[in-house]
Design a protein around this nucleic acid. Structure first.
Length: 431
RNA sequence: GGAAGCGUGGCCGAGUGGUUUAAGGCACUUGUCUUGAAAACAAGCGACGGUGAGAGCCGUCCGUGAGUUCGAAUCUCACCGCUUCCGCCA
């Protein structure tokens, strides 16, 4: 959510910056609503003040021993007649206006940071650096589906029978490697990068989804279960949601910053609107595991923190010796809540291209404002935190990258050196 | 699932219809004292919003939402959460 004050003071400036995202802000609607709000709020508060004044005077008289039938009291009571109805009307109207304002505001995406390249789509993203050299193969490269099914350890047929399309079933060594990857990532981030591991709920309430920006706009992308007649719980699409919401409605001590959390969770996405994309393999699934990095930091440090957090995610790829590149997303390709995003894309030889494996974003105060996540600043006043997160990494896609990059001519897959201790010294996945 | 109790500022905690402007304490800030610190003493100190050039003034907020009333932290109803006990259970 954007700062309402900013919209009031620099509406045109905000609209211009949102244009670079391809978002058209309805400035006329905003101004009309704001004007309405001003008039109604003033009127409401005047009525409240009048009522309070009279009530207080009655209270004072009663305190001095005047009975309810006393003419002085009766006179004051008479003056309150009519205020109640007017006030009720005014309050209802104000409530309605504020609700509309809230809806309008919560549908506006974040402002891109000045350093974000301007562009319309994925094609306008800027490559910042390439790390590692794609291996050259002296045999026909197979994709991860062929490799995994060849090993009889990747079983889409069973997953389809049990649940349907876009689910995966892993077996044996590959299931173990999947587990090992998550352990490895957690260990690196907790032991080398200073994150605190958290285990979190996978079902969250609507307030949490609103806090991080999934609701109200992107309900179609979420899975939900009915908790009772009136309430739904949502399956988390990323650990970002429960972890970031840890600070919702909190005022954190300045000394506690930065807060750095890492969490391994399954993620559930309905992927509405992506039908037909990545239908083969385990690139795009309804359920996948991810190790997520989340930081809550002082606003002055958030861009430095974004560089660090991105580096933490990169460290995993480096340790696994997987070639990747770092992309700065352009204004038109960034997510709704992000002010700036780096994507990490890992090399997939069978696709002969780099594919997203991590997305690291600074949300500035956009999520914090929705969540009322604050810290107590130098002057003792609560200020909004800046929140960041990034995948470190998506476990399923990391497994895909290993299957493809580490495949051998005989159909086996070598185990990256850093993972071998997690697999009891195993050096190869073999049928 | 059943029963009882509880929800008040950053934290603890008093407050059962009216001068509450939410007592008191802790924490925090500043000052006095001190070589410095601690202690003691003194003063300050909630959040959000509106309005104003500013000092200020006004409003809202005691888990959430409705209701009663001229007036609600306080009374009524519903919901949410927490605690304890019972039942069930990995």
């Amino acid at each position: 959510m954007l700062d309402l004050q900013l919209l009031r003071t620099d509406l045109e400036g905000v609209a211009r910056r949102l244009e670079s995202r391809g978002f058209a802000l309805d400035t006329v609607a905003f101004q009309e609503l704001e004007q309405d709000r001003k008039v109604t709020q003033t009127r409401t508060q005047e009525l409240q003040a009048e009522r309070n004044k009279l009530s207080k005077m009655i209270g004072q008289l009663r305190g001095q021993g005047h009975g309810p039938d006393d003419p002085e009291v009766g006179d004051l009571m008479a003056r309150t007649v009519g205020i109640g109805d007017d006030l009720k009307q005014a309050e209802e109207k104000l409530g309605f206006i504020q609700l509309r304002m809230q809806e309008l505001l919560s549908g506006i995406p974040n402002l891109p940071h000045e350093s974000v390249p301007v562009g319309k789509s994925e094609a306008d993203n800027v490559e910042l650096r390439k790390v590692g050299v794609p291996r050259s193969f002296d045999f026909a490269v197979r994709d991860h589906v062929d490799v995994g099914e060849g090993l009889k350890q990747l079983d889409f047929a069973s997953a389809g029978k049990i649940s349907g399309a876009r689910f995966t079933l892993l077996k044996g060594q590959m299931a173990r490697m999947h587990r090992a990857l998550a352990q490895f990532m957690l260990d690196v981030h907790t032991q080398e990068h200073g994150y605190t591991e958290v285990y979190v709920p996978y079902l969250v309430n609507a307030d949490s989804m609103r806090g991080t920006g999934q609701l109200p706009k992107f309900e179609a992308d979420l899975f939900a279960v009915q908790k009772n007649e009136n309430e739904k719980l949502y399956l988390i699409p990323t650990a970002e949601v429960p972890v970031t919401n840890m600070v919702r409605d909190e005022i954190v001590a300045l000394e506690a910053l930065p807060l750095k959390f890492v969490s391994h969770t399954p993620c559930f996405r309905s992927e509405a609107g992506s039908y037909g994309r990545d239908t083969r393999g385990m690139i795009r699934q309804h359920q996948f595991d991810k190790v997520e990095l989340v930081q809550m930091v002082h606003p002055e440090n958030s861009y430095q923190a974004l560089e660090e957090l991105t580096g933490h995610a990169e460290a995993i790829l480096k340790k696994l010796d997987l070639p990747y590149r770092v992309m700065a997303l352009c204004s038109g390709d960034m997510g709704f809540s992000a002010a700036k995003t780096y994507d990490l894309e890992v090399w997939l030889p069978a696709q002969d291209t780099y594919r997203e494996i991590s997305s690291c974003s600074n949300f500035e105060a956009f999520q914090a404002r929705r969540m009322q996540a604050r810290f107590r600043g130098d002057k003792g006043k609560p200020e909004l935190l800046h929140t960041l997160n990034g995948s470190g990494l998506a476990v399923g896609r990391t497994l895909v990258a290993i299957l493809e990059n580490y495949q051998n001519a005989d159909g086996s897959v070598s185990v990256p050196a850093v993972l071998q201790p997690y697999l009891g010294g195993m050096r190869k996945l073999e049928a």
